[in-house]
Design a protein around this nucleic acid. Structure first.
Lengths: 202, 202
DNA sequence: TGGTAAGCGGAATCGGACGTCCGATTCCGG
DNA sequence: CCGGAATCGGACGTCCGATTCCGCTTACCA
């Protein structure tokens, strides 16, 4: 016992020795690549190799594979928030913004086999930085309300209805459906105000 | 070498000794239960235990875990086809039939953690009884065309557009979204003839 | 520059799942 | 009722990936 190396959450706790800090980044990069390619099947040994580092070093920074995976997920989460903040929220056309945010999810999934897992975690809100979750919901809610205000989205939808769309889309992409954008089109049409069926409440 | 135990595809090749036949069924049942609970993570040892049989027996009937999994998938596939044949096709209301077939998928997924995998395989048509795949497509196509004929579904949809819906839905259910039926509702609305946007071709 | 604690590398260890093997047991035709 | 072919059962071998351990190296400060 007597062992509690720097908690090593994403934010580096105390200062690290310069080489340690450098290695930490190399490991994160390598892990990002490995998880993107292989999802949870990525191997610690492989990550170490890609990082040009020994396994021991990987474990020094992230005590378990799971903790490393979490760090990657958190990073992807931030990337997603960034996109919403800088691209979707400022979009003058709320409907377009909403569509783009879904498309973004599909594109990410194409590049990153682990993205679906991230999305599921985000939506499920499981064990996450509460602030990040809150911001995500707030951003989504804002865009949704704006779109409803301009009449481009049905009135009865809430954030809780939109979240699952991301999950479904990611997995459709993951399953290798080549023109997932067509699927996305169907989803989007389902969000439009429905003429004959104005309020599918319940 | 010199070994090629009864090919052991789903249809029992030659006659089995009575106890062997009995055990084969016990194994299949146990496997069904195990895969339903744990998906691909189900363990051979556990399956044997549930079946009240030694691992050796399991391996006698299914030379690898994968072959056992395939048998289960094939079984689920047949169940699905049965549902389409007996419940959806005869439904006088094609739209209702279509909706029910999607709902069926959600319900199966709730009961069976491995169902999404089955659906993905069915849709991808990977390594499957070609006849079964053909029937699946034909059934779906028939229902879809009927619905289009009565004007309840947009004209531009094809089987290829509908299949991904199943994949997405399964995974939404799998992710634990409690009211996935609401998600299903959005999907279905997206299938309706779209007033302002009649032909999202491309 | 020397001392030293922080870091490093990677061989060795652990654990656990699949699949094999073979002696014991059970069906079934004659 | 018998003999042996077909089956069983489950201990054991194999493989593979995560994690640990520890002697060696290096950054950093007085």
């Amino acid at each position: 016992m007597s062992n509690t190396p720097p908690p090593s959450g994403t934010p580096t706790g105390g200062k690290l020795r310069s080489d340690a800090a450098r290695n930490r980044l190399k490991v994160l990069d390598a892990a990002r690549a490995a998880f993107s390619e292989s999802g949870q099947d990525a191997q610690m040994g492989d990550i170490a190799r890609r990082a040009g580092v020994g396994v021991g070093t990987v474990y020094r920074h992230f005590p378990t594979k799971e903790s490393l995976a979490e760090a990657i997920v958190a990073h992807r989460f931030q990337e997603t928030l960034d996109f919403l903040r800088t691209e979707v929220l400022p979009d003058p056309d709320p409907w377009h913004g909403l569509a783009r945010s879904l498309e973004f999810c599909g594109i990410m999934q194409e590049k990153d086999r682990g993205y679906a897992e991230t999305v599921t975690a985000m939506v499920g809100g499981s064990g996450f930085d509460a602030a990040a979750i809150a911001e995500l919901n707030e951003l989504t809610d804002t865009v949704l309300k704006r779109a409803q205000a301009e009449g481009s989205v049905r009135e009865d939808l809430t954030v809780a209805d939109v979240s699952p769309l991301y999950i479904g889309l990611c997995h459709v992409v993951q399953a290798g459906v080549p023109d997932w954008r067509r699927y996305l089109g169907i989803l989007l049409d389902g969000l439009r105000p429905q003429p004959g069926r104005p309020r599918p409440t319940d």
